[in-house]
Design a protein around this nucleic acid. Sequence first.
DNA 1: AGTAGGATAATCT
DNA 2: GATTATCCTACTG
Length: 200
Amino acid sequence: MTSEARDLLSGHAADVAAMLLNGRITSLAGGWRVALRITEVEAYGGQGEDPGSHAFARQTPRNATMFGPPGRAYVYFTYGMHWCLNVVTRDEGLAGAVLIRAGEVVEGIATVRDRRPGSRDRDLARGPARLTRALGVTGDLDGVDLLARRSALRLALPSVPPVDWQTSPRTGVGGSGAATPWRFFLPQEATVSPYRRAGP
DNA sequence: AGTAGGATAATCT
DNA sequence: GATTATCCTACTG
């Protein structure tokens, strides 16, 4: 069961990312149960390979989880106030991750409305930092095994792989990293975040 | 619909 | 000291 998912996640992030669409993230953080259906992701590659990736230059304390075994959560802090959640891919020693950018709340919507007051339902987890807020995910979950039953944060791949998805360059990634269309999203989904290209 | 500015701090040069 | 895998508010059309 979980070993099948782990095998899939041992591949390159760009090959694996679309297989996470329609998957389910379940969080028990804070004592409430919240679940999302994933509608948008982005792939990030390894050292020396992907200029848009945190792992491009070398392994550091922040990105260390990206170099670990597949199926773990890589959670990082950015812009002074936001957390972002990734699924680590690729075998241990090789870096890779899939950023979970958006999802539809399918369980615990009352909890999420409480965590994000004033937000419309479609916007509750529409964007990577909104999504972590909806799930109650912060840095203390960095490195947890998303495929272990005991974990407070879990990933379930879709029982039937998605057949219909679209791609684009990644949001906010410029330079030569913009050449790869490594953003993957489900068409006709209100929860997919609006695409913004990188600034100058 | 789109665009612009500010918030705010870890990480890296 | 610059940059950042973002979000929110407030404007303009």
